[in-house]
């Protein structure tokens, strides 16, 4: 099996602050790869670079075999992104939102209409598909937000905290959906700090802190290595038990740039 993602010394600096520090990474095709780390560890910055939203300061990476800087457009064609913030227009309804993004990927006509209906059905929003999504509940919105990234059948899917702030039913729904999504051999990069989610879904996880990857292994491998019974213990062992919002750890807003 080939590699979906390879990163070589990938680095991102904001002024004197290094958000991602010489990260080497390989993600196999068809696996669910969990990216774990405390707030501000550099997960989102890493994902933003891999999804071509941010240029690396140093190093490079290949996504689906394409260089993220020199072949950014090729990368964009094969990736899907579920970001931390919703990528949906609140005044538009579900159909309008999905039709719009589908067209950006060059889809159109009957093919797009069918795909949109299929996706809306998949997340059980048929009854609400003509309502502006501003009136949806958070769970409904997030369901639509996830399938928005599936319009063009991406080979590689990036999910940045897809279940944050959802109720247990919605969390269950989304997790089952993620399991379904890998079935076609799709690679999924899952960013989360919900440990049982990572444990349940991921084939392998990387724990990242201070911009560096501390460890990469299967959840079982990690638990065995540290002699603990769950991933949370591994996580706290590696990243410490102190709160992470001491002044020296905080990145000034300006340095982060537009996020």
């Amino acid at each position: 099996m080939g590699l979906a993602i390879e990163a070589f010394g990938l680095t991102k600096r904001f002024g004197s602050f290094t958000a991602v520090d010489h990260v080497d990474l390989s993600v196999k095709e068809g696996e669910i790869f969990g990216l774990l780390g405390p707030n501000g560890a550099g997960k989102s910055t890493l994902v933003r670079m891999l999804t071509t939203l941010m240029r690396p300061t140093e190093g490079t990476a290949k996504v689906g075999g394409y260089d993220i800087v020199n072949q950014a457009d090729e990368v964009r064609k094969i990736i899907g992104l579920v970001a931390e913030k919703l990528i949906l227009y609140p005044r538009l309804n579900a159909v309008e939102n999905l039709m719009f993004f589908g067209r950006l990927y060059g889809m159109g006509g009957e093919e797009l209409r069918r795909k949109v209906d299929e996706l809306i059905e998949m997340v059980r929003l048929e009854r609400f598909k003509h309502f502006p999504i501003g009136g949806y509940s958070s769970g409904m919105r997030q369901r639509l937000n996830v399938v928005r990234a599936l319009l063009h059948d991406p080979k590689i899917l990036f999910l940045d905290e897809p279940t944050a702030m959802l109720d247990p039913q919605s969390i269950r729904f989304i997790r089952d959906l993620i399991k379904d999504l890998r079935k076609g051999g799709r690679t999924i990069i899952l960013t989360t700090h919900i440990m049982d989610e990572a444990e349940e879904l991921s084939d392998r996880v990387a724990i990242i802190d201070h911009g560096r990857i501390l460890v990469v292994d299967t959840p079982e491998g990690l638990k065995a290595r540290f002699g603990v019974s769950n991933l949370l213990e591994v996580f706290l062992e590696l990243t410490g038990r102190d709160l992470r919002d001491r002044a020296e750890n905080r990145v000034p807003i300006r340095a982060i740039g537009r996020v």
Partner: peptide, 15 residues
């Protein structure tokens, strides 16, 4: 669009 996050959706597509 930048603040609500939709710009990321556009910028991560081949446009």
């Amino acid at each position: 669009e930048r603040e609500q996050g939709t710009l990321d959706g556009i910028m991560s597509s081949p446009v």
